[in-house]
Computed example of a mutant assay.
Amino acid sequence: MKRRHVLERGIQAVDLFCGAGGLTCGLKKAGVKVRLGVDVDPACQYPYEYNNSAPCLLKDVREIKTAELASHFVADESIRLIAGCAPCQTFSTYNQKADKTDSRWWLLREFLRVVRELNPELVTMENVPGLAEHTVFGEFLGFLHESGYHTAEKIVRCEDYGIPQQRSRLVVMASRLGKIDLLPPSHFRNRTKTVRDALSDLPVLASGGVDKSDPIHQSSELSPLNLKRIRASKPSGTWRDWPNELVAKCHRKKSGKTYPSVYGRMSWDEPAPTITTQFFGFGNGRFGHPEQDRAISLREGAIIQSFPRTYRFVEPNQPIYMKAIGRLVGNAVPVRLGEVIGKSFRHHIDSLQAAPIPTKR
């Protein structure tokens, strides 16, 4: 097939380790046609399929035959993208114990296996910056280069792209069609968004409260002691601001004094801290609401991750389990980052289309 004809076709994608669909949602916003998501967690299926109008294959990537994935690509659309974010806890700075015996270590190699067997035109992978320090990442890049891919690897500060959160991520983009790069923040003319920009107009909640019009906008209930603690907390402050009788025994020890950001309130006028899978708990980080006496709600965490406000995580009238939704939200690729990646691929293809075709002599 002639190169120009290939470039005139749209981009279609398969999203491995798709979770609740953050990356897919962003890619679709950028005009990428996502044909399939793959994840092993059953809790992912409903939010992924309902919000993104694409099927979710519940299967361990290690058990997938690439023919299963290839069947979802439409034959007359020639630019194929394999995208994904292998579980990142193994490589996170929060995980001090993980090593090569952790089974998740090998999931990036499974991602690599899929790329090797399908040989797509485009590849993207998002993960924590710590991955770049491990040999498995060097293997991944080495294979791409040896296979004729042009690559770009960057540590991205999400707040630079208008995501209301201090979150650094490693983004890899690869193309067999030509040189590629992630579009810079200046291309989008974003300003830094704050917690106030993201959350200030949501309904007020009490500790343990639920918004009747949106059950995902609910907060965990604080104990009497933690209610006293949050009332003594200042935005961007620490537990060191509290009266001594409120300070936990573990924080009075020398080893505990190095963890000042737990039991903290967010600041209205700064981006939020990194949203983790435990963001709904006041004691798990600086996840206290800037003004209300509670931790941020599930919906507020999803908004900080740039999910649309109407994004559904559970079927109507089904029970809401905070730990399950916290896991889906905290593990997600921010939707806005997925959109930036998708627009970067679209810009890449548009640039190749505009370039003159070399003539043979």
Rank of each mutant, 00 (worst) to 15 (best):
P203R: 03
L183A: 06
R169K: 08
D211V: 06
D41A: 08
S344L: 02
A332P: 04
G326Y: 00
Y161N: 03
Q166G: 10
R104K: 11
G148D: 09
A355I: 08
R191E: 15
H217Y: 09
P55S: 08
D60R: 06
K249P: 10
H5D: 13
M1Q: 15
R286I: 09
Y311S: 03
L107N: 06
G84E: 02
L108M: 06
Y263R: 02
R252Y: 14
R240H: 15
A295T: 09
E49L: 05
W105F: 14
P42M: 03
E77Y: 08
I349M: 05
L7W: 01
L57M: 13
L122D: 00
V329F: 00
C85T: 14
A248N: 14
R3C: 09
H134R: 10
V262R: 04
I325T: 04
L141R: 05
P358T: 05
G281I: 11
R80N: 14
I357V: 15
D181R: 15
S297P: 10
P87S: 05
V204S: 13
V333H: 02
I275R: 00
D214C: 12
Q89E: 14
F137P: 08
R240F: 15
N331Y: 01
G138E: 12
E121I: 04
E126T: 10
A354D: 09
R113W: 08
G21P: 04
S220F: 11
E315Q: 15
T124W: 03
N51L: 03
K2P: 15
S207I: 04
S213G: 15
S223C: 12
V340W: 00
D211M: 03
D350S: 13
R35A: 04
E49W: 04
T277W: 00
C18F: 04
K343V: 10
S236T: 09
K228H: 12
S53R: 11
F313T: 08
G178N: 11
E68S: 09
Y46N: 10
C85N: 07
I11H: 02
D181G: 14
V128S: 02
V329K: 00
G283Q: 07
M125K: 01
P224Y: 07
A206C: 13
V156R: 00
N317H: 13
V262P: 05
Q305M: 07
L205C: 07
F188Q: 03
P235D: 09
Q353I: 11
D41W: 09
Q45P: 03
I357L: 13
L27M: 14
K323D: 12
P87Y: 06
K253N: 12
E8W: 13
I230W: 00
A198R: 03
A174F: 06
T277A: 04
T66Y: 06
R3D: 14
Y259Q: 12
Y263T: 06
V136G: 07
W106C: 05
M266H: 05
I303D: 01
V34L: 01
